[in-house]
Amino acid sequence: MKQHKHTRKHRRRKSCKIHTHFDLNSATAFGGAAGLIDFVLQTGMDKYFCTEELGKRKDAQFQMDDVALTFVLGTLLGQERIFHFEDIEHDPLLMLKLDLPKLPDTTLLYKDLKRLGSPVGMEAIRSAQRLVLKSLLPKGHDIVVDIDSSVETVFGNQEQSAVGFNPHHHGRASFASSLF
């Protein structure tokens, strides 16, 4: 994955102190999220989205790292669907932290989501995830993932039930779920 030199935005993005004023001129719903936003920016995950394969024209208003950070931060701040991102498009805290005049709109997010779904985009996402996990784990330590599964036997032909491993009722349809 070739990485190219990044735009002006990457150098200017940084943790910054926010002065709190109790007025409604620049109100944000995410005032308590400044630390979380700083953490995401300090991981440097956006550099994995600055590849030639995912790149856009140099004069594009939003590069793929802007879009990726918008997805990550919006999701962390509770925006469950892309059309919910309309609510945060002009959020002053996010615009300040990302050093953008406004966030990408939903039309652009839908369009660029296709790029992130490509093999190159998926590799960029995996690399960013590994970077974040590596920064969270102390050096030399392993992580253990404990997976518990539960099986719920159904009676009849409920949608999405299937015959599978069922220790109590062999051969019966059930729902299986895993808890991490």
Results as ranks from 00 to 15, higher is better:
C16I: 14
H19V: 14
T20H: 09
T20Y: 09
H21G: 04
D23V: 01
A29I: 07
A29N: 14
F30C: 01
A34V: 15
I37H: 04
D38I: 01
F39D: 09
V40W: 04
V40Y: 07
Q42A: 11
G44R: 03
Y48G: 00
T51M: 01
T51E: 00
T51K: 00
T51C: 01
L54K: 01
R57G: 13
R57S: 15
Q61T: 13
Q61I: 11
D65W: 02
D66A: 05
L69S: 06
L69D: 07
F71Y: 15
V72I: 15
V72Y: 05
V72E: 03
L73V: 15
G74N: 02
T75Y: 10
L77D: 09
G78V: 08
Q79A: 06
Q79C: 14
E80Y: 05
F83D: 15
H84V: 04
H84W: 08
H84M: 10
H84G: 04
F85S: 02
F85D: 02
E86A: 11
E86H: 13
I88K: 00
I88P: 02
E89K: 15
D91F: 08
D91C: 06
M95Y: 04
L96T: 15
D99M: 09
L100G: 03
P101N: 10
K102T: 06
K102V: 03
L103F: 08
L103H: 06
D105I: 04
D105S: 10
T106C: 12
L108Y: 12
Y110D: 06
K111E: 15
K111G: 08
D112P: 01
D112G: 00
L113P: 03
K114P: 07
K114V: 15
R115F: 06
P119A: 06
V120F: 11
G121I: 08
E123I: 08
E123H: 13
I125S: 05
R126V: 10
R130H: 12
L131Q: 12
V132W: 04
L133Q: 09
L133D: 07
P138E: 14
